[in-house]
Nucleic acid binder design. Structure first.
Lengths: 192, 192
DNA sequence: TTGACAGGTGAACGAATGTACACTATAATG
DNA sequence: CATTATAGTGTACATTCGTTCACCTGTCAA
């Protein structure tokens, strides 16, 4: 099979996965690759497996490989980029997997206000919050004080927990009664 | 089926998806749910579909619903959080889908240095870079100047393009020869 | 010119798929 | 108590699955 054709198969294959979030069956590949014989499909799939695009689990079933759901991590900004030629370096990384550890205890919040701007958290960012984790000093926490929820650094002052913004223009909060911690900020995602 | 059991099925089901990145077959659910009859599985699956946990495509095949691969977006930090009771609000969001538009033209870079710290991009962050997009003034770009790659704001000065860091301690770069743009920064991801 | 090979067709096959129907036992309800 | 869902078993079945084998055809190198 010609190289261009193969890249085309690959493209259609990945497209299918993006749309349907599952791998196509052989019969489905038959039509998206425009083949007449399932055997032709089988040969293409074998190449996919060789290339690592897809894997096989213990039962022989196809599973998506890292390239199907992730993006390649190419290097560091100042260490230099690879050449503009075909980049086969770098491992594929899913941002979901990177940022979220305990999926069922994690939720997202959109940030309003600029009280954490010096910590690199801007208005409009999404913060990844994990519940049910004991917050440590230095963590960024989602806390309820006086029936209002805010995001601040958790610090200790004279043996008491205080909430410290990352913006000089905002005051440190020294909670009087009890403080309710809604979760610990584990990550930040921003889109331009 | 009791409520706790159902939640358990759901948990095992999602677990399977996380591990294998595909939905289990009925036979597989049979063993992970500890059933003897596939029909019992069918009934649980029907509930999954009702709940929207999974969907069915046009061929009747199961596909993962938003909850399977995303995380719930609950609200804004200062607007208040929902009560600690069962949170059925908020749509599920996949960070991959949120941050990455054109998958095949996107790659990740790890940030070293603090030249963009005032733009909320810290050392160790991952930036999501999209290639092949015409950079506009005000964009954060990955640029090659004097055989070295850096990340800076793209600005215009007297009709010429310049690179401006977001850190007062770094100088503005006024490229002499030609400047090579490796991509436009479309997003940032940070893990604590 | 011949042989090897890549790329594909076509048919056949056992295993696995999801669905359906009849039935049972337990729990909830009036 | 009788009744009615609920949750599950067991069996059967047509369909689809992925694999395999034999075969065809054009290309390219020896």
């Amino acid at each position: 099979m010609s190289k261009e054709n193969y890249q085309n198969y690959k493209k259609h294959f990945i497209n299918f996965y993006q749309r349907s979030r599952r791998l196509p069956s052989y019969a489905e590949m038959l039509s998206i690759f425009n083949f007449q014989s399932k055997n032709a499909v089988a040969k293409v799939v074998a190449k996919f497996v060789d290339e690592g695009l897809v894997g096989k689990d213990e039962t022989g079933r196809l599973i998506a490989g890292p390239d199907m759901f992730g993006v390649r991590l190419l290097g560091t900004v100042q260490a230099g980029l690879p050449t503009t030629a075909e980049q086969e370096v770098g491992e594929a990384l899913s941002l979901d997997e990177y940022l979220i550890e305990k999926k069922d205890k994690t939720y997202l919040l959109e940030v309003t206000g600029d009280s954490m701007i010096e910590a690199g958290i801007n208005e409009g960012d999404l913060v990844i919050v994990e519940q049910g984790r004991a917050p440590k000093v230095g963590d960024i926490v989602i806390a309820e004080v006086d029936h209002e929820w805010t995001m601040k650094f958790l610090e200790k002052e004279n043996g008491r927990m205080i909430l410290k913004p990352a913006n000089k223009n905002y005051p440190i909060i020294r909670p009087q009664g009890e403080m309710n911690i809604g979760g610990v900020v584990k990550g930040v995602a921003r889109k331009y």
